[in-house]
Write a protein that binds this DNA or RNA. Sequence first.
DNA 1: TTACATGTAATATAATAAGTTACAGGTGGG
DNA 2: CCCACCTGTAACTTATTATATTACATGTAA
Lengths: 144, 144
Amino acid sequence: MSISSRFAVGIHILTLLEVNKDEVNSSEFIAASVNTNPVVIRKIMGMLKKAGLVKVRPGVAGAELADKLDEITLLDVYKAVDAVPENELFSVHGSPNPQCSVGRNIQSAVLPIFAGAQSAMEKALAHVTIQDIVRSITEQENKN
Amino acid sequence: MSISSRFAVGIHILTLLEVNKDEVNSSEFIAASVNTNPVVIRKIMGMLKKAGLVKVRPGVAGAELADKLDEITLLDVYKAVDAVPENELFSVHGSPNPQCSVGRNIQSAVLPIFAGAQSAMEKALAHVTIQDIVRSITEQENKN
DNA sequence: TTACATGTAATATAATAAGTTACAGGTGGG
DNA sequence: CCCACCTGTAACTTATTATATTACATGTAA
């Protein structure tokens, strides 16, 4: 399968908080932009909050970014929303036969390679910030 | 979620075909090493065959590698078994609100970045061959 | 205190992967 | 030539998970 859409939604939320920073961003408003249920937004917002990326308070409408735009990388978001559960992008078959030389060593042979590949992907995400996304979106807008 | 274990199993199969090349590698034998059902092996084997990585014939027991060890990269296997369905590692929420400037541009902002991150991961896989895996496994064996 | 927000538990609903059964079709030794 | 045994594949079960939804507890401020 693929990486949870929570990641894309998390990026959407943070971008929206910036673009729409002069208004009150309630979970219902955000949900309308993402096109999903407000509870989904609140759950993701809770994860972003726990990671220190947004400021939200119980009972009071609206959320805002906790950091500067260019200090929030997509990797931060990715980790915040637990985009890859248990931090393992690749799954490995659980119990290969220990009586076979391949079976008893395949995991230790393959795990470091998988970790390296995952790491390469995550490094790419670390090079992009929410500011880049905001810029990309405003540029698109200005074309029309 | 994570990338299908078909990928790890595919690597396991190809490695086993090499390590065990002097014997007959029936789907049942391979399944015993992987610890799964023979039908699962035959299905994956079918994908590897279609990609030109293994030679198998209907009715006749045993399979063998179609290419040299060092000419089969993990990226080849990854693609062969369709490890990432529809070639999209990251999922994006489907229908954001077109009446919102963020909603109508988030996809085009995010897709190239996701593609780049996925590509970085796949490039890492392209640098490793089945030979590397075989070597890693025999080295592990010799330690004991 | 009331209207309305967030936080969160509990529960559908849906999609998907892996395992399994069953059987069609191919192959070659006896 | 036929029989034992393999691969190929369709159909189905089972388990797991993501997302959406309902319901409600809790917090806030006018």
